[in-house]
């Protein structure tokens, strides 16, 4: 699927001179991603991970025709980095950073509604189209090319499900980690809509978790607007109310909204089977194909 990224995507890495940014820029290049530049204030003119570094994203766009960005910038500066990407008219920004204050993301969210640039994340592993490109930190070697689309709020849970799929010879068209924060750029519905429109995706796995109502809204979308079969998984059935389960967004409210039960019921009502284990999710996908 090339709705979000493919091997033509020209990537600038914001924060490429930091430990994480540098390591993962190298990993992305090794996977075959077309990383063309880095952007780090004050580091213009240097080279990192084998690509030229510019002081600003707009210089990287002018000099290297970058059209997407991957952001590895510490939480205190990450919202600023996302604004820079959004204001530079890229097609896509992928924010890996975990721990951005929610109020910062509210202002980002406002800007996002005014620009054409898409945002995946933050607090996400990124996106991969196996065999073509990965933007983010997903381990490329566990993925295989195929026709199953994946969308998930969580990184390692995605890897777990991919592992279960790959073991059965079920490859993936694209996997998108949308992130575990309360306010994120790309929603389940955005990703599901892209999979529905994608000729290379014949089945979809959606991994949700407790907190918010995105899964319930996605369930309605699936019921009303999707023909592609979807299998679901919801993490956090045993989470107590009022406790943040790792992800900033993974919290059941005191009154019991955002529970796993409510999400599972909504998905079942939309005809989506929900696995009790990751293995059962793979069973459902196998049944679809």
């Amino acid at each position: 699927m090339s709705t979000f990224v493919d091997d033509d995507t020209r990537v600038v890495v914001q924060g490429i001179t930091g430990g994480e940014g540098n390591f993962h820029a190298g990993q992305m290049i090794e996977y075959g991603t077309n990383v063309v530049a880095g952007a780090v204030p004050g580091k213009g003119g240097q080279e990192a991970a084998g690509v030229p570094v510019y002081d600003t994203v707009s210089e990287a766009v002018d000099a290297e025709n970058a059209d997407a960005s991957v952001i590895f910038v510490p939480p205190a500066f990450a919202a600023d980095a996302i604004f820079e990407a959004l204001d530079t008219d890229l097609d896509l920004a992928v924010a890996i950073t975990e721990g951005i204050p929610t109020q910062d993301m509210a202002t980002v969210n406002k800007r996002l509604s005014e620009v054409d640039t898409g945002l995946i994340g933050p607090n996400c592993p990124g996106i991969i189209t196996p065999g073509e490109a990965k933007l983010g930190i997903l381990p490329g070697n566990i993925f295989s090319e195929g026709n199953v689309g994946l969308v998930s709020r969580s990184g390692t849970l995605t890897y777990q499900v991919v592992d279960n799929l790959t073991e059965r010879g079920l490859g993936q068209s694209t996997a998108i980690g949308i992130g575990g924060d309360p306010i994120i750029g790309t929603s389940f519905i955005d990703a599901l809509g892209a999979f529905e429109a994608d000729a290379d995706t014949d089945a979809v796995v959606m991994c949700g978790e407790i907190g918010g109502e995105d899964e319930e809204q996605a369930a309605r979308f699936i019921g009303e607007q999707m023909d592609t079969p979807v299998a679901g998984f919801i993490a956090g059935r045993t989470a107590p109310p009022g406790k943040r389960m790792g992800h900033a967004g993974a919290i059941v409210s005191g009154s019991g909204t955002g529970t796993a039960r409510s999400k599972i019921d909504a998905l079942n009502d939309a005809g989506v089977p929900v696995g009790d284990t990751p293995e059962e999710v793979a069973d459902h996908v196998e049944g679809f194909l």
Binding site: S154, L157, A235, T238, K243, M245, A260
Partner: peptide
């Protein structure tokens, strides 16, 4: 660490919030 104490007797350690939650759920399952 991201840590939440619960009332059961199976201690759980893992990596990544979604996978750790899933491990808790499977213990219950």
């Amino acid at each position: 660490f991201d840590y939440v104490r619960l009332s059961g007797n199976v201690g759980i350690i893992g990596n990544g919030a979604g996978l750790v939650m899933t491990t808790l759920d499977l213990v219950d399952h």
